[in-house]
Design a binder for these strands. Structure first.
Length: 644
RNA sequence: GCCGGUGUAGCUCAGUUGGCCAGAGCAGCUGAUUUGUAAUCAGCUGGUCGGGGGUUCGAAUCCCUCCACCGGCUCCA
């Protein structure tokens, strides 16, 4: 007998070799029907795998991420089985579970796959699922495994085998399909009740663009049809929050093929929004000791040779523009830091001036590959809320922490609660990709890690994600459908001061090298506004709305009174307008609701007589009659609550 | 850049297997209406069907090519 310890601490005895599914059955049949996998001594196992020693056990169901993971991974195998049954000679790359579903990378040879084939493939998957074929695990020797895949002619699996050690190789089989796989899997295919194939894409084998591109098929499955329906509804809802759609509907920005791909055109309303964000940050930065600077949109080639950007990105940038006679080369500026370094150098600096915080809303231009462009989140011309802090080594950590505070302040004012702080470090395996000394990197990486720890940020560490000149802390926020985007960023840089030979006179009357911190709380205004739009679904915080209220007169007779109200509200620093169109009140309300105007003020005979307004709140409806003082107070209170 | 898909009026979309002047709703304009909490009525304007080339008696529809957009991959100073 063996002792099984459950999550609640209870211990029960079972015969040696029993499995998690049997244990679940001993508790209740209902539970057993829902068990997808099990965590045995903190390793996720097949529920059908025999337990031979004392162990801690927690049963994994659809409600655990690890349970879902096993479910979707098993679904990838099911899709592979269906593919193999319908497309002879198909070869398989990898097929993992992902955050929402799974994919499998396949080599279809000369054949292509189109979404029209999905229905048939889904049907095949369901047919196989109904057979309730068990997923069986088999330990195989490396030689056996190689023999199997050689016979099958699957070079991808053979390549994967090269990286595995003999003795740790397992096969999983369900039905006629055998796959090299670590597992774990769900007990049998019958658990899979609903299947939806979602999209098809090219994906380079092993993520290497120099290697063959396989066909990646994304899908999702569920243990109940109802869950699939809900998921599809969620996707539909998310599509409504797409910033490209909202930006168009709300008249914020547009693109023109003629102006060029990835070059956003800001319409008056969008510009208004940008200006408000910019001013908001300028005020906050002024309080934190920043000074504003302005630099041109182009810079001499030498500037980027010095900074190192020329060597790193010269060939992949917009190509230089030349002076007609001398042939001097200038680049559109892809970043502001080299310019700012030259501002630093414009006069001798004393330690007493540090930290020197140079801020600029600088528009930069980067050549992004055509396939990378994406609404406002990935563009070729964008404005950074950039600043460079020049400080002494001793000041780095404190400055870094102050920047974190600023980013958190900005995020709070805009309602971003759900974000992660990604600490991006150098790839220790590939140091050649980066410039700068080991020592400098260590110092910088430690400064970031300590500062993040001190501020108790919810962090993830990513190796190899650092910029080529230094490590960074990025604030990552998800868009409507869960794609992660970098917004705010803070980067420590020991390299540029070196390259530009920046110096300051220390207390000791000797020359010292300052440290530079790059930082941008929004990141880029374009991307920030995109993600903000998706988060609030176009319902901006009141302080940010261009049109905080719309006055809707019942008829022409009340236009004079409406104008009077408008002027009074404007005098209270509120923004809005009067809808003087010759439309019925229902129409005016509908349009204001669609424009997501936070407050609608309906005025007619009654309101004019009482010197009041009828307040209607977006998405909520009639709030009743208010005096102008009451209404003004209501808005001021709402605005203040955002910042406190 | 790569794989797959899409491109019809300002917006959202119809346009059967290639066949008469390419349609609708909304928006816009004109007029009527003077309105009480999510669409008042009528009339009108508006498109060289993404660009270019080809096949055909005839192309929005078929083919080639370029561009843009969408979903991924790779990349992202």
């Amino acid at each position: 007998m063996i002792n099984i310890t459950f999550p609640d601490g209870k211990v029960r005895q079972y015969p040696k070799g029993t499995n998690s599914l049997e244990i679940a059955k001993s508790i209740s049949e209902g539970l057993a029907r829902n068990v997808l996998a099990a965590k045995v001594n903190n390793h996720v196992w097949d529920a059908t795998r025999a337990i031979t020693t004392d162990a801690s056990l927690s049963l994994l169901t659809w409600d655990n991420d690890e349970g879902k993971n096993a479910f979707w991974h098993s679904s990838a195998h099911l899709m592979a089985e269906a593919l193999e049954a319908t497309i002879p000679g198909v070869k398989f790359g990898i097929g993992p579970a992902i955050e929402s579903g799974y994919y499998y990378d396949v080599d279809l040879g000369d054949r292509t796959m189109t979404p029209e084939e999905f229905t048939a493939l889904e049907a095949k998957m369901l047919e196989l699922a109904r057979q309730k074929n068990p997923y069986t695990r088999k330990e195989v020797s490396k030689a056996e495994a190689i023999t199997y895949f050689k016979a099958k002619g699957d070079e991808y699996k053979l390549e994967l085998l090269e990286g595995l050690n003999d003795g740790e190789i397992t096969f999983y089989q369900q039905g006629n399909f055998v796959d090299l796989c670590r597992g774990p899997h769900i007990p049998d295919t019958g658990f899979i009740k609903a299947v939806k194939l979602l999209k098809i894409a090219g994906a380079y084998w092993r993520g290497d663009e120099k290697r063959k591109q396989l066909t990646r098929i994304y899908g999702i499955t569920f243990p109940q049809q109802k869950l699939l329906t809900e998921h599809l509804q969620f996707l539909e809802e998310a599509a409504k929050r797409d910033h490209r759609k909202l930006g168009k509907e709300l008249g914020l920005f547009t693109f023109s093929q003629k102006v060029g791909a990835g070059l956003p055109l800001w319409l008056p309303k969008g510009t208004d929004l940008r200006e408000r964000l910019v001013n908001f940050l300028k005020v906050a930065q002024a309080k934190s000791g920043y000074v504003q600077v302005v630099t041109p949109h182009i810079g001499h080639k030498d500037l980027y040779v010095t900074s190192g950007h020329y060597e790193k990105y010269g060939a992949d940038s917009f190509q230089p523009i030349k002076t007609p006679r001398e042939g001097e080369e200038f680049f559109l500026k892809p970043m502001n830091c080299p310019h700012h370094c030259e501002i630093y150098k414009s006069s001798p600096r004393s330690y007493k001036e540090l930290p020197l915080r140079l801020a600029e809303f600088g528009t930069v231009y980067r050549y992004e590959q055509s396939g990378e462009l994406h609404g406002l989140t990935r563009v070729r011309g964008f404005t950074q809320d950039d600043a460079h802090l020049f400080c002494t080594e001793d000041q780095v950590k404190e400055e870094f922490i102050k920047v974190i505070d600023l980013v958190l302040y900005v995020f709070k004012a805009l309602g971003f609660k759900d974000f992660t702080a990604q600490i991006s470090l150098r790839d220790p395996e590939n140091k050649a990709k980066y410039i700068g000394s080991d020592e400098a990197w260590h110092k910088a990486e430690n400064a970031i890690i300590e500062a993040a720890k001190e501020k108790n940020l919810n962090t993830v560490v990513e190796l190899g994600e650092a910029a080529f000149y230094g490590p960074k802390l990025d604030f990552m926020v998800k868009d409507a459908i869960g794609r992660k985007w970098q917004l705010g960023t803070i980067q420590v840089d020991y390299n540029l001061p070196e390259r530009f030979e920046l110096e300051y006179v220390g207390q000791d009357n000797k020359m010292h090298r300052p440290v530079m911190i790059h930082r941008a709380p929004f990141g880029s205004l374009e991307r920030f506004i995109a993600v903000l739009l998706e988060h609030c679904e176009g319902n901006f915080p009141l302080w940010l709305s261009s049109e905080q209220f719309a006055i809707l007169p019942i008829s022409e007779k009340y236009h004079d009174y409406s104008q009077k109200v408008l002027n009074m509200l404007k005098n209270s620093d509120l923004r809005g307008l009067v809808d003087e169109r010759n439309e019925k009140i229902g129409k005016k309300i509908r349009d204001a609701e669609l424009k997501k105007v936070p407050y609608m003020l309906i005025v007619g005979e009654k309101e004019e007589a009482e010197n009041k307004v009828s307040v209607r709140k977006h998405g909520q409806g009639d709030l009743g009659s208010n005096s102008l003082e009451e209404f003004t107070q209501l808005l001021k209170t709402e605005i203040n609550s955002t910042f406190n």
